[in-house]
Amino acid sequence: MTNRCLMSAHHLSKTVPIQSGSLTILDNVAVEINRGDSLAIIGASGSGKSTLLGLLAGLDVPSAGEVWLEDVCLSTLDEDGRARLRAAHMGFVFQSFQLLPSLTALENVMLPLELTVSKDAMPQARDWLERVGLGTRLDHTPRQLSGGEQQRVAIARAFATRPALLFADEPTGNLDRNTGARVIDLLFELNQAQQTTLVLVTHDSSLADRCTTHLQLDAGRCVETRA
């Protein structure tokens, strides 16, 4: 692994037991992501994109193969160890936003900061919400925000801990075209400014085109990788 390489995965497979035996969702996939790069994982529905993202982020464990974040092998860590790694190095943006419905926008952004013992969680969270253009909506709960606004809160939350690695799972999947485009602009803009490494799952090829590397999945296999 070169010094530039932030994350890599080798011979990654995921099978799940089903009634008639087992189902292979991901089959022998290899990934290498350099620091500051952006990787688009593309493919049709059910091709294994989200599963790969889950494995890379340590949200799930592979049936075979290994995932490395710098010099740490995720397979050697238990769930709590992987959680600490996520808290320290990773941020997330999801298709369904995944904001806590009972918390305000400000409190949602404060959440990861508080988990990492950040002392000034509130000013930092406020600052991030201002940067995504929601400085006047701090006390609004997700129900009081539009889809685009909710995703902007999620982006603020993802960047708030200044992660090295940002995972985005279909970030525009629940948004209309215009709103989606604005959200993506914001995401790339912040990514650039923060020098974050981005892993983006999408089936939108125009969105994928904005990334530096592509990995195309089909029925769990990697069919194309291009830089």
Binding site: L59, E79, A83, R84, L85, A88, L100, L111, L115, T116
Partner: peptide
């Protein structure tokens, strides 16, 4: 969500 954001058990 909390686990995803890094909260341990």
């Amino acid at each position: 969500m909390l686990r995803c954001l890094g909260a341990v058990q």
